Simulated assay, not measured.
Amino acid sequence: MSEVTDLVVIEKSNAMAVFTTKEQLDPLIEKIEKEARSLVPDVTTRKGRDAIASMAHKVARSKTYIDNAGKDLVAELKALPKQIDESRRIVRERLDALKDEVRRPLTEWEAEQERIAAEKAAEEERMRIEAEEKAALEALKKQFESDHEMALLMNEKFDRDAQEKSEQAERQRIAHEENLKRQAAEQAKREMEEKAERERAEAARRESELKLKADQAERDRVAAEQKAEADRKAAAEKAEREKQEAIAAEKRKAQEAADKVRREAEAKEAARLAEEKRIADEAAAREADVKHRKAVGTEIVNALTSNTSITRDQAIEVLAALKDGLIPRTKINY
């Protein structure tokens, strides 16, 4: 929307307001209408006709500019296609009508010039034919004059015949001229009627095109409404699906978290039980070792007291010295 026209400028920051509020769009179009209608049409001069064509071109450029601005906005704001397209339709119809309105004096002048040219051509053709007929008549008159001179030498009857021929030729000339005039007038009349018929047909065609455009715009509007409704339903269904999927995902996430907590608790409990078992096994092993060591010590003490003359207390002292490694080259094998 960077293009600048001679009649209107739409800032990008204000484009939304222009196409979505009638209070913004109407003054914009009215500004173009005021500027266009301020031109006083003058088809009598080349400058005046160029001014009319230039103003019509400016209106067309403004229509294209505003329409393109609407297209850009539609591309940027997919959520507002219906309202923007409606604004574009209003701009196209009103500015097309304004363009035709502004150019109408020039169009009518051009049609009038074509009619004048056709009449001029018909008049020139008539004058050419009259000139040819006049030349032929002059030649005939000269011939008649020559014949008359010769007829003076002839009898009265020959003179009467010559006079009758002259009168007959004059009557034929007058009748021929009248016939040429009538044909030229009829030709000009036919051409004017044909032109009027073409203009009526063209007007009917334009009216038909406008009606077709209006019907197409209505169909487009209905289709846009239907599409918007379908999009709304699809969006609602998608939102519901996403909501249900999000709920299911949250449930899965919660279940996974609960499973993780459960697994961690089970792992901790298993570790705790394993640690308790390890401690119990170590305690049992230590207790068994103590018992074993006591049994070995008792056997040693009993063997010393049985096989030597030392007392039990002395045997216990020897056992303690063996356990503490105080006696070289000796070791208790448990």
Rank of each mutant, 00 (worst) to 15 (best):
residue 15 A to H: 04
residue 17 A to S: 13
residue 20 T to G: 02
residue 25 L to I: 07
residue 26 D to Y: 08
residue 27 P to Y: 02
residue 28 L to A: 12
residue 30 E to R: 12
residue 30 E to T: 11
residue 38 S to D: 09
residue 42 D to V: 07
residue 42 D to W: 01
residue 42 D to L: 03
residue 52 I to W: 00
residue 59 V to G: 01
residue 60 A to Y: 09
residue 69 A to G: 14
residue 72 D to W: 09
residue 77 L to E: 13
residue 81 P to E: 04
residue 84 I to M: 04
residue 87 S to F: 00
residue 90 I to V: 13
residue 96 D to R: 04
residue 101 E to T: 08
residue 101 E to D: 12
residue 102 V to A: 03
residue 106 L to N: 04
residue 108 E to T: 11
residue 114 E to Y: 04
residue 117 A to T: 14
residue 120 K to E: 14
residue 130 E to A: 11
residue 131 A to P: 00
residue 131 A to D: 06
residue 132 E to N: 02
residue 144 F to A: 11
residue 145 E to A: 15
residue 145 E to C: 07
residue 149 E to W: 10
residue 156 E to G: 06
residue 166 S to A: 12
residue 175 A to Q: 04
residue 180 L to N: 07
residue 188 A to S: 15
residue 189 K to R: 15
residue 194 E to G: 10
residue 198 R to Y: 03
residue 199 E to S: 09
residue 210 L to C: 00
residue 215 D to L: 07
residue 216 Q to M: 05
residue 217 A to I: 01
residue 217 A to Q: 08
residue 226 Q to A: 10
residue 228 A to Q: 11
residue 231 D to P: 07
residue 234 A to D: 08
residue 247 I to R: 13
residue 251 K to D: 01
residue 256 E to C: 00
residue 258 A to D: 02
residue 258 A to R: 06
residue 259 D to W: 07
residue 259 D to A: 10
residue 272 R to E: 14
residue 275 E to D: 12
residue 277 K to Y: 14
residue 279 I to A: 15
residue 281 D to A: 15
residue 283 A to Q: 15
residue 289 D to Q: 12
residue 290 V to Q: 14
residue 291 K to A: 13
residue 294 K to Y: 13
residue 294 K to G: 13
residue 304 L to E: 08
residue 307 N to F: 07
residue 307 N to L: 11
residue 310 I to T: 12
residue 312 R to L: 13
residue 322 L to W: 09
residue 329 R to C: 05
residue 329 R to K: 12
residue 331 K to P: 01
residue 334 Y to K: 11
